[in-house]
C-alpha cells in the first residue's frame, strides 16, 4: 500500500468515472438543456398560455408564470428517471463497468452513492439552466426562484433513488419503457404541472396528492411565485415527503447494488 496515496474517497472516484463519460457529450447536453425549456415555455407558456384567461384559478398570475416552475420540477423528474435507468443497466449489465470497479477497493455501496452524487450534480446543472431560462422569459415572480433549484433537485432525487434501486434488479431494459409510459408520462400530465389539480375529479385529486411530482411542483411553484410560506404546514409536508422518498430510495439502491454485485 506504500505507493497508493489516498487523496480521494471511493465515492468521488465513481463520480469521476461518470464525469469522464459525460465529458464526451458535454456540449450537446448543455445546448439541449437550454433549448428544451425555451421551446416548452414558448409553445405552451406563451403560445397556448395566450388563450388561458382564467387567471384566478392559477393564483392570479399569467399562465407562463404558473407553468414554468411546474415544468422545472417535471424536467428534473424526467432527467432523474433517465439517469437512474439506462446508465445503471449499462454499468451492471452492458459494459459491466460496475463489476470492474468492484474488483478494485471500491465497494458496491460506493458505486451506488457515487452514481447518486453524479445524478445530483446533473440535476443541479439542468435545474439551474432551466431556472435561468425562466428568469429570461420573465416568468419568475419572486427572487425565491433561486431556491427552486434545490427543490427541483430534491424532486429528481425522490425519483432517482427508488428507480435506480429497481433498475439494479433488472437484467434487460424491457420494463423501463413501462416506467416512462405508465409512471412518468401520467405524472407529467396530471400532477399539477399544466393545470391546478383542483380541475381534476376528486378521486384523482387524492391520487395526485400521493405522487412525488405533485409535491415537487408545489415547492418549485411556491418558490417561483413567492407563495411558499402561505401554507407552511403544506410546505413542510412536501419537503418531508420528498426527503423520505429520496432517503428510502438511496437505501434500497445500496441494498440492491450489494445483492447484484456481491455473489
Amino acid at each position: 500500500m506504500t505507493s497508493l496515496a489516498r487523496p480521494s474517497s471511493p465515492i468521488s472516484r465513481v463520480f469521476e468515472h461518470r464525469f469522464v463519460q459525460y465529458r464526451r457529450t458535454f456540449r450537446a447536453s448543455i445546448f439541449s438543456s437550454f433549448i428544451s425549456p425555451m421551446m416548452f415555455l414558448t409553445a405552451m407558456g406563451i403560445g397556448l398560455g395566450g388563450y388561458v384567461t382564467n387567471d384566478a384559478a392559477l393564483g392570479g398570475v399569467p399562465y407562463l408564470a404558473f407553468l414554468a416552475p411546474g415544468l422545472l420540477a417535471a424536467t428534473a423528474m424526467q432527467s432523474a428517471t433517465f439517469e437512474a435507468t439506462f446508465p445503471i443497466m449499462g454499468g451492471l449489465v452492458w459494459s459491466k463497468v460496475f463489476h470492474a470497479m468492484y474488483a478494485t477497493p471500491i465497494s458496491p455501496r460506493d458505486i451506488a452513492l457515487g452514481n447518486l452524487a453524479w445524478i445530483t450534480v446533473r440535476l443541479t446543472m439542468i435545474s439551474t439552466i432551466f431556472s435561468v431560462v425562466i428568469v429570461i422569459f420573465g416568468a419568475a415572480e419572486s427572487p425565491l426562484i433561486v431556491l427552486a433549484i434545490p427543490a427541483a433537485v430534491l424532486t429528481g432525487l425522490a425519483f432517482a433513488g427508488p428507480i435506480a434501486a429497481f433498475a439494479a434488479t433488472q437484467k434487460t431494459p424491457n420494463k423501463f419503457a413501462a416506467i416512462f409510459r405508465f409512471g412518468i408520462t401520467p405524472l407529467f400530465l396530471f400532477s399539477g404541472t399544466f393545470f391546478p389539480i383542483g380541475s381534476l375529479p376528486v378521486v384523482l385529486q387524492g391520487l395526485a396528492w400521493l405522487t412525488p411530482l405533485f409535491h415537487g411542483v408545489a415547492l418549485t411553484r411556491g418558490l417561483s411565485l413567492g407563495t411558499i410560506m402561505d401554507d407552511p404546514i403544506a410546505t413542510a409536508i412536501h419537503v418531508i415527503y420528498l426527503v423520505t422518498l429520496a432517503t428510502v430510495g438511496a437505501h434500497l439502491m445500496i441494498r440492491n447494488f450489494d445483492r447484484r454485485l456481491i455473489r
Partner: peptide, 20 residues
C-alpha cells in the same frame, strides 16, 4: 468489463483512479 465509450487511455487512467 471495459468502458467501450471511453478511449483506450481513459480506460487505463480511470481504472488507476479507482485505486486512489
Amino acid at each position: 468489463t471495459l468502458d467501450v465509450e471511453l478511449t483506450v487511455r481513459e480506460n487505463l487512467s480511470i481504472y488507476g483512479r479507482y485505486f486512489g
